[in-house]
Amino acid sequence: MPPMSPLPSSSPSVESVAAVLRAAGCVFAEDEARLILAQARTPEELAVLVDRRANGLPLELVLGWAEFRGLRITVEPGVFVPRRRTEFLVEQALDRAPEASVVVDLCCGSGAVGAALATALDGVELHAADIDPAAVRCARRNVAGVGGHVHAGDLFAALPAGLRGRVDILAANVPYVPSGEVGLLPAEARDHEPLVALDGGTDGLDVLRRVAAEAPDWLAPRGCLLVETSRAQAPAAVAAFTAAGLTTRLAVSEEWYAHVVIGAS
């Protein structure tokens, strides 16, 4: 598909690129234009990037990275793009376990949560895991700089057995969209992110329940489990944590519209 509107033949400006993006329906056209102009190394590359964005590719995939807690997290097609609201989960983990030495990022996607935690904690032993091969490949690039290890597999089955009873922070950004609502997601998520990273089952809590049930075996004596959920699902998510024997509380950020269930061993 051709661009929504051609770029001018002269040196493109923020205004000219933004005009193309605005015509394509991009709400933050000026901000996106600045990022794309900074990313492009040649006029030809700029034209390609603008074309991709104008035709609906998420900005993060156009750029090849997403900002997350001050880090540039590499993302690629077919990998879940980290949301800024998930920074709230990271903040809660750091508040709860500021001296953590072993961190696990379960359902890690790009590895953004694990990379952010390891960067803040410095010298931590980091393990991340995901069932999706594309996510595992991407996460390995993002946690390499902090010495992280990335494992492929289904939840805890992917982790080394030696982590049992040693995990201080278990962060699990599980899929939590109810199956029947996946089709209602914005096109950028629905069309460009893997279903396995979005679909949480009938009520959206299938994976959360599995994680909560097994987490006590993996947590250190003062370890904590943190999972993001929605406002509507929060009561059922808290109940699932409590049923697993975890001391549970719900943390809420109205600013980020974020809800994080925290369970302590």
Score class of each variant (00 low, 15 high):
residue 49 L to N: 11
residue 200 G to C: 03
residue 174 V to A: 09
residue 80 F to M: 12
residue 34 R to H: 11
residue 18 A to L: 05
residue 109 G to L: 11
residue 30 E to S: 14
residue 211 V to P: 00
residue 17 V to Y: 11
residue 75 V to N: 09
residue 93 A to H: 05
residue 40 A to N: 09
residue 205 L to V: 02
residue 204 G to Y: 06
residue 147 G to I: 02
residue 149 H to S: 13
residue 217 D to E: 15
residue 97 A to G: 09
residue 188 E to I: 01
residue 249 R to C: 06
residue 112 A to K: 00
residue 228 E to A: 09
residue 159 L to I: 01
residue 153 G to H: 01
residue 187 A to Q: 13
residue 158 A to I: 03
residue 40 A to F: 07
residue 222 R to F: 00
residue 217 D to C: 14
residue 64 G to N: 09
residue 160 P to D: 07
residue 140 R to K: 08
residue 254 E to R: 08
residue 59 L to H: 12
residue 72 R to E: 14
residue 196 V to T: 14
residue 94 L to A: 07
residue 163 L to V: 00
residue 96 R to Y: 13
residue 177 V to H: 12
residue 170 L to G: 03
residue 163 L to S: 00
residue 152 A to N: 02
residue 122 D to R: 15
residue 119 T to V: 10
residue 129 A to K: 04
residue 187 A to R: 14
residue 262 I to S: 10
residue 40 A to T: 02
residue 146 V to K: 07
residue 35 L to I: 02
residue 197 A to L: 08
residue 210 R to G: 14
residue 148 G to S: 09
residue 169 I to F: 11
residue 112 A to M: 11
residue 27 V to F: 12
residue 49 L to D: 07
residue 251 A to G: 03
residue 82 P to T: 04
residue 165 G to W: 00
residue 49 L to K: 08
residue 141 R to C: 01
residue 86 T to K: 04
residue 165 G to S: 03
residue 122 D to L: 14
residue 146 V to A: 11
residue 174 V to P: 08
residue 46 L to Q: 08
residue 9 S to D: 15
residue 166 R to E: 12
residue 20 V to K: 13
residue 256 W to S: 15
residue 49 L to H: 06
residue 100 A to F: 13
residue 170 L to W: 06
residue 53 R to I: 06
residue 134 A to C: 09
residue 41 R to L: 13
residue 131 I to E: 12
residue 68 F to I: 04
residue 114 G to V: 01
residue 253 S to R: 00
residue 222 R to C: 01
residue 65 W to G: 04
residue 203 D to I: 02
residue 41 R to M: 11
residue 163 L to N: 00
residue 191 D to M: 11
residue 69 R to T: 03
residue 34 R to P: 00
residue 110 S to Y: 07
residue 218 W to G: 04
residue 175 P to Y: 13
residue 265 S to Y: 02
residue 153 G to L: 06
residue 160 P to Q: 07
residue 180 G to M: 08
residue 33 A to V: 03
residue 61 L to G: 09
residue 195 L to N: 05
residue 239 A to H: 09
residue 50 V to Y: 10
residue 22 R to A: 15
residue 60 E to S: 15
residue 171 A to L: 06
residue 150 V to R: 04
residue 1 M to T: 12
residue 263 G to H: 04
residue 216 P to E: 10
residue 121 L to K: 02
residue 59 L to A: 13
residue 76 E to N: 01
residue 186 P to Y: 08
residue 209 R to M: 04
